[in-house]
Amino acid sequence: MATSRALRYLESGKNLAGSACGVAGVGLALAGAAGAYWPLVVAGLYGAGALIAPPERVAPPAVPDPAERLGVVREDLGRLREYLAEVELPRAAGEALAGLLELYAALLDPRWAAEVLAADPEAVHALSRAVRTDVPECVDTYHRTRWWTRLSPGGESPERHLERQLAVLVAEAERVTADLHEMEVRRQQTHTTYLEDRGRS
């Protein structure tokens, strides 16, 4: 770590500027202008050069391209489908989940909605969270709770909880869809206004 920092400093603009000023100090010493204190002059010029040099710019972390992020979510959706194909669900929940997955797939379709989706980071986050966390957690907790309910029956059924959870996720996906649709409507209206204004000018 220390060696790495030392190497980075040797290559830094501060060291290069300080070295250039230090070389100028050596030149003054050779010309006899620095006198007996030439080491202090060289060191002082090096320090001054290092101080006035602009600080090193640290590159910001690379942010994935929106299309690339959606590609990852699309792959996650494929893995989610494979997982769900192996689990047993009540009919009503299974139908609701199938519709939800179709809606997710439509939102991630690279030919249509994905371009609009990529422009809305909050929508991308909501969809990613649903595919990676929410749906798998709903199904897994349903199966775990159903097993315990067989040992200790009573209370609201796991099936009912699953249906309630999926209803919330469906409503969330429908809100995202409505918001993206509204974005496209506004975009069309804006273009209409632009063309009409251009036609009048």
Results as ranks from 00 to 15, higher is better:
Tyr104Pro: 01
Tyr37Gly: 15
Ser128Ala: 15
Arg160Leu: 08
Gly13Asn: 07
Glu156Arg: 13
Thr190Asp: 15
Glu95Asn: 11
Pro153Lys: 02
Gly49Ile: 03
Ser152Val: 13
Thr193Gly: 06
Arg111Pro: 01
Gly199Leu: 09
Ala24His: 02
Pro66Ala: 01
Gly154Lys: 01
Glu196Leu: 14
Ala113Val: 05
Gly94Trp: 00
Asp197Pro: 01
Arg200Phe: 12
Trp147Leu: 15
Thr3His: 08
Ala106Glu: 15
Ala114Arg: 09
Gly18Asp: 02
Val73Ser: 00
Trp38Asp: 01
Ala43Lys: 00
Ser152Pro: 00
Ser157Glu: 10
His161Lys: 10
Ala34Gln: 02
Val116Asn: 00
Ala34His: 04
Ala123Cys: 04
Glu196Asp: 13
Arg74Pro: 04
Pro61Met: 10
Leu195Phe: 10
Ala123Arg: 04
Gly13Glu: 02
Ala171Gly: 03
Leu97Tyr: 03
Tyr194Val: 07
Val168Tyr: 14
Asp120Val: 10
Ser19Tyr: 06
Ala171Trp: 04
Arg150Thr: 05
Gly44Pro: 04
Gly18Thr: 00
Val42Trp: 03
Leu108Glu: 03
Arg8Asn: 07
Ala96Ser: 15
Ala126His: 01
Pro153Thr: 04
Leu97Gly: 02
Val131Met: 05
Ala59Thr: 15
Asn15Arg: 11
Gly199Val: 01
His191Asp: 09
Leu84Phe: 09
Gly32Thr: 03
Leu166Asn: 00
Ala17Arg: 05
Val116Trp: 03
Leu162Ala: 00
His161Asp: 09
Thr190Tyr: 09
Ala20Pro: 04
Leu45Trp: 01
Leu151Val: 00
Arg57His: 10
Pro60Thr: 04
Ile52Gln: 05
Leu80Glu: 03
